[in-house]
Design a binder for these strands. Structure first.
Lengths: 258, 258
DNA sequence: AAAATAGTGTCTATGAGACACTATAGT
DNA sequence: ACTATAGTGTCTCATAGACACTATTTT
């Protein structure tokens, strides 16, 4: 970017770089706050779920919000997102990706807060433990649009009650669903939402939940197996009331595009 | 996000929202600067080109950088990007989209600057006028990777000389190319880089330049015409030394995905 | 006429969808 | 035996690539 530096003295011509930097005053302008918000997404019972925390202070007191936090002055954005995951959800390892940056001037009534949104894919079991606390909830995402149209989503409690959400987090989650739908066909996202071993039907149901539409079974099997990312374990499902399916594992293999 | 508000008094229990907001002190923490950087991209002579400005002050004095500017306290990110386009390139209308947010702690040696990167697609003629000034340049993007692998790109002057670039702008442009390659197949990007009327071969060359590989002519024609986004004008090319091609125009029509 | 590209028609290879069929568990 | 799902084989249809051919302009 082109600087409009405002050094402490107005006679900054002819300085070398070291002198310039020493005189540079970062506080000459008022700055916005910068936060990260992380959508911890999982799939359960053919529904997209996301971890929300109930706010215990103003603004939006009592409303449900994505876990987040301000970005430290010496912390990268990715580190800040990882810290939020660690501190708010005790999660060390997960698929995490930057989503979009939200910066409407009035999105936070306190002051100007620019939020860099991330999303993370987590196996249901891990999130379910967290959501036991009364201030936590694993909300169901209700997507009121088809395909990759985009737009805000609605949130429901486990009992199907609509949840009051804070800030612009319905828009954030809308963009998260949009991204998931766009990437699930070619990137190994589905595996992140399942235990290490899973059946092909498990994986298909995850894809169907993300996409919001049913998929052709035969075609899904062929494509998925042809991708070379799955390894058969030889282990079968147990006690399922029908012919048991084989368990597969994800093989990272040659790095796929992104 | 979950707030860690630090009101001016420590006894903030039991306040209503209005009182809380009145007492909220946004300056309790040190804040990073937030900037937008805009990659003004076009295609000319089968090469991707981008507008760069030569920096006249430290840091990176003399190096080439994307046009950018700090985000005002009452300005949305999109507005800031539009303002940069207007002030730095005199461009009012263009396809503009947020790209990614870069926030490595040391990406700017002055102070912590978080940069929300945008890219814009502009017809070559418009950019060429700007690049006449000695402090401006329409650099060629050299992409050292295939497909959507990603990574930083290199920049060359019109004479093929490598250009010294400022900050992390090679990475920013790498992400821009990645985004372009991912979207050009299904979103109407190519039209943005051409005059109102163009031939199918013109459009194919733009797609080939973005993708960095050649495309099948027959298939490209079929797909493009079948998309229903092109309208034949009945006007033919003039004085081309071979059978003249018909000019087409882009028809916005029903809003495509994104 | 030669050169160069526009534009059309058709064949083939590939992949998705559809459907039928067999296999194997629990009840 | 019945039910439910796993897994395989095959047919069809749509689309991309390849190639041949005709059309139309300038030189």
């Amino acid at each position: 970017m082109t600087i409009k530096a405002k050094p402490k003295t107005s006679t900054n011509e002819g300085l070398n770089e070291a002198d310039f930097l020493a005189r540079y005053d970062a506080n000459a302008f008022e700055h916005p706050s910068v936060a990260v918000d992380v959508a911890l997404v999982t799939v359960h019972e053919d529904q997209l779920r996301v971890l929300l925390l109930q706010r215990d202070s103003h603004p939006y007191k009592g409303a449900w919000a994505l876990p987040g936090g301000f970005v430290g002055m010496k912390e990268s954005l990715d580190s800040a997102a990882a810290r939020v995951l660690r501190e708010k959800a005790r999660i060390q390892k997960a698929f995490v990706e930057q989503l979009y940056t939200f910066g409407a001037p009035a999105r936070d009534p306190r002051t100007r807060v620019i939020s860099v949104a991330y999303y993370a894919l987590v196996e249901y079991q891990k999130l379910q433990q967290l959501a036991q606390k009364p201030s936590h909830c694993l909300a169901t995402l209700v997507v009121p649009w088809q395909g990759e149209a985009g737009g805000p989503v609605k949130l429901q409690s486990a009992l199907g009650q609509p949840l009051r959400t804070a800030f612009d987090h319905q828009e954030v989650l809308g963009v998260a669903v949009q991204r998931l739908r766009a990437k699930v066909d070619y990137a190994p996202l589905g595996f992140q939402l399942l235990p290490k071993a899973f059946t092909l039907l498990d994986l298909q149901r995850v894809h169907e939940t993300i996409l919001g539409r049913s998929l052709n079974k035969d075609s899904f099997r062929r494509r998925t197996l042809a991708s070379g990312r799955l390894r058969a374990t030889g282990v079968m499902e147990q006690a399922v009331g029908h012919r048991p399916a084989e368990h597969y594992q994800y093989v990272p293999g040659i790095t796929p595009a992104q």
